[in-house]
Simulated assay, not measured.
Amino acid sequence: MKATHIAAALALGAGLAGCGSTTPANEPAAQEGGGRGPITFLGGKFEAESVQKIVDAWNAAHPDEKATVVLLPESADEQRRKLIQSAQTKSDTGDVILMDAVWTSEFAANRWVDELKLDTTGFLPTTIETAKYRDKLYAMPLFTGTGLLYYRTDLVKEPPKTWDEMKKICADDLPGQRA
């Protein structure tokens, strides 16, 4: 795989900069050999629609550095197997890869991905920690899988602090609601 520094350029240049980076979208990615593009983005079917929007935005802003999306198999195990196979054979199939957070240390330890030097201000700290290996950043969060709980202030005056409190509020204070 080619240097993954392009991952930062693609993601940040396509509008994720609003998530916290101050890196200008037109700033070249630091990689050996210089230059960027064309860029191949490897991702699974689950995130295909979101990734395509990012790639479309990148392509509109960088017509000389076109990015394309190549879909990996639907199964996470098969995605991992394909990415490892590409890395072990030093294939240049993908420049940017979407990988599960639990794979970060494996890919970093085997030097299948490069360290990223990016400003992570504004990102959820726990998601940034999952993107690190030995205190160095090797990935950037795109999807966090973070669940959010909303409540109606007209029905619940104070948000619950524990799961048990939430179940009690649902059972006792909200008639007709199920915990």
Rank of each mutant, 00 (worst) to 15 (best):
M1F: 14
K2T: 15
A3F: 12
H5M: 10
A8D: 07
A8N: 03
L12Y: 05
G13V: 04
A14I: 01
G15L: 07
L16Y: 10
L16I: 07
G18C: 12
G18T: 14
S21A: 15
A25G: 01
E27Y: 06
P28Y: 02
P28E: 03
A29C: 12
A30C: 00
A30I: 09
Q31E: 10
Q31L: 14
E32K: 14
E32G: 14
R36E: 12
G37V: 08
G37M: 09
P38M: 11
I39Y: 08
I39K: 10
F41E: 01
L42M: 12
A48R: 07
E49W: 03
E49I: 00
I54K: 03
A57S: 09
W58C: 07
W58D: 06
A60E: 12
A61K: 15
H62P: 07
P63E: 04
K66C: 00
V69N: 02
V70K: 14
V70M: 11
L72V: 06
L72Y: 03
E74H: 06
A76T: 11
A76Y: 10
D77C: 05
E78S: 11
Q79W: 13
L83T: 13
L83P: 10
S86E: 14
K90I: 13
S91Q: 05
S91E: 06
S91I: 08
T93V: 15
G94V: 14
D95V: 04
D95Q: 07
V96A: 01
I97D: 03
I97H: 02
M99C: 14
D100N: 14
D100Y: 13
W103F: 01
S105V: 02
E106T: 08
F107L: 13
A108P: 12
A108T: 12
N110Y: 02
W112T: 02
D114M: 02
D119R: 07
D119M: 06
D119L: 05
T120A: 03
T120C: 01
T121R: 15
T121Q: 14
G122P: 05
F123P: 06
P125E: 02
P125A: 09
P125M: 09
I128K: 04
E129H: 00
E129P: 01
A131L: 04
A131Q: 03
R134I: 07
D135R: 09
Y138G: 10
Y138H: 08
A139C: 10
M140D: 01
P141G: 03
F143M: 12
T144W: 08
T144H: 00
L148E: 00
L149T: 11
Y150I: 04
Y151A: 04
R152A: 09
D154G: 01
L155I: 06
L155T: 04
V156R: 03
E158S: 13
K161M: 03
T162Q: 01
T162V: 00
E165P: 01
M166N: 08
K167H: 10
K168V: 09
I169Q: 08
C170F: 02
D173F: 08
D173P: 00
L174R: 02
P175C: 06
G176Q: 08
Q177H: 15
